[in-house]
């Protein structure tokens, strides 16, 4: 635990010193721009525009950071050979990996929290006061964070056995495919033979289903999200992330570092 905490804290510090959090400036400008612009158009859709724009930005910026920093977590340490001194210490490779993961998720959590505050500030500026239903935004943000953790785990896994460029490609590819995992399950191929259909369905259950984390539509319209949905998404994210991290640890523990 001590080792994981040390690596995580250092990863967080690296992100901060590498000015990763500067993206918040961009987000702030976006929110301010949106608030000003929305104020000039129809009153009825102000909330919709601000919330959907805000949540999309939180998600996209988060994905961007999760993919690029997630892939760099381990590959950068190998490239720069900073890992060599560390692995000579009494620390397991899986501890290092987990510490890196926790550190980046922590960075993303802080970043996302700051963006959420910005989103609420923009919302408050166009429709003060806030309503109780606005709290559902927090649910959406929580689910985005789960999604980001899963993406970080995937990026980490790929970066353990392939080049950073390919790892980015694989992670993004898997994310995009995962957005349609649910659709694959319900596909009714008219010209598909039964075995292909079965194969497609089978694959769809292996793919990370990112639809599980999408509650944008109800939240934008101020509707609630069922507790069971949140609960299922949480368990799904925890399990999937744990399995992916275990795979990453298994690969990384056997890797020769020359």
């Amino acid at each position: 635990m001590r080792n994981i905490r040390a690596v995580a804290a250092n990863t967080f510090r690296e992100a901060v010193r590498d000015r990763v959090l500067y993206n918040l400036v961009f987000f702030a400008l976006l929110m301010m721009g949106a608030a000003i612009l929305v104020g000039q158009i129809s009153i009825g859709i102000q909330q919709d525009v601000i919330v959907s724009l805000g949540l999309s930005a939180i998600s996209i910026i988060g994905i961007f950071i999760a993919v690029f920093l997630g892939v760099a977590l381990v590959s950068k340490e190998m490239d720069k050979r900073t890992l060599y001194s560390l692995l000579a210490k009494p620390v397991h490779r899986w501890e290092f990996l987990l510490g890196k993961f926790v550190g980046l998720v922590l960075t993303l959590a802080v970043n996302t929290a700051a963006m959420t505050l910005g989103l609420y500030a923009a919302l408050w500026s166009v429709k003060r006061p806030l309503e109780p239903a606005d709290a559902y935004i927090l649910v959406a943000v929580y689910l985005i964070l789960l999604k980001l953790a899963l993406i970080v785990a995937l990026a980490l896994l790929f970066s353990c056995f392939t080049s950073p460029f390919l790892a980015i490609l694989f992670t993004v590819g898997l994310y995009v495919t995962g957005l349609f995992a649910g659709d694959l399950r319900t596909v009714r191929g008219l010209r598909m033979d039964p075995s292909t259909l079965q194969f497609t369905r089978g694959i769809s259950y292996l793919l990370p289903n990112f639809q599980n984390f999408d509650v944008m539509a109800p939240v934008v319209h101020g509707q609630g999200v069922p507790a069971s949905f949140v609960w299922n998404a949480t368990v799904y994210a925890l399990l999937y992330t744990a399995i992916v991290l275990a795979g990453a640890a298994a690969v990384f523990s056997r890797r020769n570092l020359k």
Binding site: N10, E14, D18, R81, T82, Y84, S85, A88, P90
Partner: peptide, 21 residues
């Protein structure tokens, strides 16, 4: 055995460390 690394010190050739620290 990872525990033995508590009693070993290692300097890699051309060591690099986190340059932001």
């Amino acid at each position: 055995d990872v525990s033995v690394h508590g009693s070993i010190g290692y300097l890699p050739e051309q060591p690099y460390f986190y340059d932001y620290l």
